[in-house]
Design a protein around this nucleic acid. Structure first.
Length: 269
DNA sequence: CGGCCTTTGAAGGTC
DNA sequence: GACCTTCAAAGGCCG
């Protein structure tokens, strides 16, 4: 119910034409990155909101919004958008929620935007309070510059098609397989992703494309490069090692232990 | 406490 | 253009 409304709002916002009959569906634009083009060529799309309006066969997913509420760190916060796929806008007056949200983001929370009041969802990564002026005076210029840099709100990458699919289907897989470990769940979701028809995948590619568009509108100067190095990652050497040889019992278990469970329970295939 | 694991896709960088 | 690397989400696991 809420999905229809919010999606309509979203489609309206994005000038996304509603379906007006067979054969008039908009041709999906190919993914922006050529290398990431789905292997099966250009799919014939059914409109997104048609997909989400249709009674979804999945059980009621976990109410993600519950989880998102205490996470104001989700800076660009497409939560109104994300939660569409995960099935929760709560009891918000959603006819206005998306626009309110979007306009809030556009009007105040966007980095570089002149508006003074930051959007509540855009929070410094540290979550700590600003230093008192006298404290600041004790810092060197380089230190305060580094601090300032560190406190820049993090704008996350837009989710790709598979990530959107995962977000929607994770709860279902968890319910069906009584698994909780994300690594195992993601393996299942990866296989299911490949088992999807091109039309089904196309819905998510299109959704991801819309999300990238929206992201570009909200954060014109943002680059994926901005977030490079913000996560501490294993070294390249280790990474290569892990893809060829599980160098530790933990890795071994992760790589082979899980794979030995390839005898998935029925629903987990 | 924070990185690893695991998945696919997007995007940036290098050669 | 091919290839490599990083990061998006998620939550249990482990040092």
């Amino acid at each position: 119910m809420y999905k229809e409304t919010v999606y309509s709002a979203f489609n309206l916002l994005m000038h996304y034409p509603p379906p007006s009959g067979a054969g008039q569906h908009p041709q999906p634009q190919p993914p922006l990155h050529k290398a990431s083009q789905p292997a099966h060529g250009v799919p014939q799309l059914s409109p997104l909101y048609e997909h989400f309006n249709s009674p979804h066969p999945t059980p009621a997913p976990v109410d993600i919004s519950q989880k998102q509420v205490p996470r104001p760190l989700q800076t660009p916060d497409l939560s109104g958008f994300y939660s569409l796929t995960s099935g929760s806008m709560g009891q918000l007056p959603h006819t206005v929620s998306w626009f309110t949200h979007a306009s809030l983001m556009l009007g105040s929370g966007v980095p570089g935007h002149p508006a003074a009041i930051p959007h509540p969802t855009i929070v410094p990564p540290s979550g700590k309070q600003e230093l008192q002026p006298y404290d600041r005076n004790l810092k060197t210029q380089a230190e305060s510059k580094a601090e300032k840099e560190a406190k820049k709100p993090t704008i996350k990458k837009p989710l790709n098609a598979f990530m959107l699919y995962m977000k929607e289907m994770r709860a279902k897989v968890i319910a069906e397989c009584t698994l909780k470990e994300s690594a195992a769940i993601n393996q299942i979701l990866g296989r299911r992703w490949h088992a999807l028809s091109r039309e089904e995948q196309a819905k998510y590619y299109e959704l991801a494309r819309k999300e990238r568009q929206l992201h570009m509108q909200l954060y014109p100067g943002w680059s994926a490069r901005d977030n490079y190095g913000k996560k501490k990652r294993r070294s390249r050497e280790k990474h290569q090692e892990s893809t060829t040889d599980p160098g530790s019992p933990k890795k071994c278990r992760a790589r082979f232990g899980l794979n030995q469970q390839m005898d998935w329970c029925g629903p987990c295939r």
